[in-house]
Design a protein around this nucleic acid. Structure first.
Lengths: 189, 189
DNA sequence: ACTTAATGTGAGTGGGCGTTCACTCATGTA
DNA sequence: TACATGAGTGAACGCCCACTCACATTAAGT
């Protein structure tokens, strides 16, 4: 029996690249298959539909990051160190796998409502850090949903500006310190 | 000679609503014309193409906000008061014309690279405030592009979370104080 | 009342889309 | 060697898209 794992991965990698370059709707099945050097039918051996392909690429990475942030939250001791480690982790992922991160960023509006609260989720982890920090008196009382949104937005916009490449040109890693400091000031930790 | 101004406005309003509800690519010309109660050909009397329609709706509002923020920057005296007035202005627009603001927010990635630096631009106004604040010694020395991105991200994510309606449920106006305070802490004003 | 030009119409056009399926090929098993 | 099974193929299908254009309607100028 032949093994199609390598082909599935090739399709995923190629689709990711094109989805980022042109957008999901603007990328056709033929774009993907011709760029990957396979037949149209082959794609459908591995993914049920274009939507399923786009969703699988998103969910896999999104939940992985959620699990990783969860690990950080468990491991670190204080709200400060948790938040710092999480932001540095974001920066590392961005530098290590820019394509994946970019895709998550650009397609989140399409997929976010398909996520169930049970799935591992970066946003919930950041909110939990703030919640715990308040309960332990490490940071002032505040609305954890509002603060989590602001911190997320602050980080995400850095990446957004970096992706456009016009407003921010330096590497994300070199901005980690600045981002960490600003985020801590937002939650007043 | 008949006057088609009212029709053009009707098309714009209808398209805006549908673009927000379903996305630009997912909205068809027939969706727009049937929803507006006009013929397909009529739309093309007023807009050269679907792309042009989407762009006009974006650019008009984007530049208007840019001009308004410019006015605030000229009028207010200190970096603190400028930033505060700008953020409150954002909140007011959102509450007064949620549809327009939502469209700007959701379609910005599609249109942002079509903007030239000469066009009125909200981002540049915020950066200018930070730049001036540094020069006058009102806020510490910092990278104005990075800080402007962080402040913009902080505000935008509040609106994003509000639009999704799951994470933030209260009105944007009621969050203005919180957002202003957090933004000032980010730039350490 | 007549002229003129802008505005409104919608069936029609050509093209590109996602998806299917009957078929071939390659590999592991008996 | 013969068979079974999953992987790979791409022409074909039906649908729906953005856009066109020959014609009808409207309203302002004379």
């Amino acid at each position: 029996m032949p093994d199609g794992t390598a082909t599935k991965e090739l399709i995923g990698r190629t689709a990711l690249r094109l989805f980022i370059e042109k957008g999901i709707t603007e990328t056709t099945i033929r774009d993907i298959t011709s760029s990957a050097g396979i037949a149209v039918g082959t794609l459908y051996r591995h993914y049920g539909s274009k939507d399923e392909l786009a969703w699988e690429l998103f969910a896999e990475s999104y939940m992985t990051i959620g699990r990783e942030l969860h690990g950080i939250r468990i491991k670190e001791a204080t709200a400060r160190s948790k938040l710092e480690a999480m932001i540095r982790h974001f920066c590392n992922i961005f530098d290590k796998d820019t394509a994946m991160f970019t895709y998550l960023f650009l397609s989140r509006h399409r997929h976010l409502q398909k996520l169930t609260p049970r799935m591992p989720n970066p946003y919930i982890e950041i909110r939990s850090v703030i919640n715990e920090g308040i309960r332990r008196g490490e940071i002032p009382r505040q609305d954890p949903d509002v603060s989590a949104s602001m911190v997320m937005g602050l980080i995400m916009q850095m990446i957004d500006s970096r992706l456009l490449g016009q407003r921010i040109k330096q590497s994300i890693a070199s901005l980690a310190d600045t981002t960490v400091a600003a985020s801590l000031r937002v939650v007043e930790a």
